[in-house]
């Protein structure tokens, strides 16, 4: 019986990802890493949670294994399973086992979407035991100091069915990543979409206006990611207002009245 795994080296981030530090998140994350405490990232969609993880992994020079959680994600999807080839079985490590074995960073994106039974493996790994039991193989892995568990979720969705349990939450160092402030966001948009600073500032201005509409029926305001999309389309020659319409207004809502308002905002600024 031989063990084959994905190559861990593939998960090592070679080039420095572009990330501008908002406040003290990097220092805190590094301190958490040093002390073996897992990390919980909260924040609206498109505010840079995943990018921050990439940056952190690059900074720590550890491989980053990202799992996008969905409602059918089971324990064996995380830990691993036996497969058969030519009448022989062999074991394949799941992403979490892979990260534990090699001292990487395992990042569970949108963790509330995962099936509830995954807590069985998350809990012992997230407290001071730092253990991962591979039931099928009768193996108990203890995570090396280099290993880190990180999860993210968006507290904006107020669904009672998708709330994180206290017993899970209280194992993590929680970092809130909101939208960056105007200057920083301008720099990010300008860099990511390669538009000039002036245009980036206007896009950021539109986003700030949409974020002011949260009480008026908009679930969330335009994220930095949407601004980058708008910038990319504009750079490719799409008329600016049209680009914003398709990347920002239409992406945010289906409500006619809100769409009209968003379009008015766009046409005021651009």
């Amino acid at each position: 019986m031989q063990i084959t795994s994905q190559k861990i080296e593939e998960h090592l981030i070679q080039e420095q990802p572009f990330y501008l530090v908002q406040k003290n998140e990097l220092i805190i994350a590094q301190a958490a890493y040093k002390n073996g405490i897992p990390l919980l990232l909260k924040g609206p969609t498109g505010s840079g949670k995943s990018r921050f993880m990439q940056f952190l992994a690059w900074k720590l020079q550890r491989p980053l294994i990202t799992v996008s959680c969905h409602d059918d994600l089971s324990t064996s999807d995380l830990v691993g399973r036996y497969l058969i080839r030519g009448g022989e079985t062999f074991w394949v490590d799941g992403p979490m086992t892979l990260a534990v074995r090699h001292g990487g960073i395992c990042y569970l994106d949108e963790v509330v979407e995962a099936r509830k039974d995954t807590t069985v493996v998350i809990h012992p790994l997230a407290d001071d035991r730092r253990e991962l039991a591979i039931e099928k193989r009768g193996e108990l892995l203890t995570a090396p100091p280099e290993f880190m568990l990180a999860v993210s979720y968006n507290p904006g969705y107020q669904s009672v069915l998708k709330d994180m349990k206290q017993s899970t939450r209280q194992r993590f160092v929680a970092l809130e990543l909101g939208y960056p402030h105007a200057d920083l966001e301008t720099e990010i948009v300008a860099h990511e979409s390669a538009v000039d600073n002036k245009l980036a500032r206007l896009l950021v201005r539109i986003a700030a206006m949409t974020r002011g509409l949260k009480d008026a029926g908009l679930q969330e305001g335009a994220s930095t990611r949407l601004l980058v999309h708008a910038g990319l389309l504009i750079k490719d020659g799409i008329e600016p207002r049209e680009a914003c319409r398709v990347t920002i207004s239409q992406a945010l809502t289906d409500d006619r009245e809100l769409l009209n308002t968003l379009d008015e905002m766009v046409s005021s600024v651009l």
Partner: peptide, 13 residues
């Protein structure tokens, strides 16, 4: 009115 009101509120925060 609905459109303008939202516009103003978005603009001013």
């Amino acid at each position: 009115i609905p459109r303008l009101l939202l516009y103003l509120r978005g603009l001013s925060g």
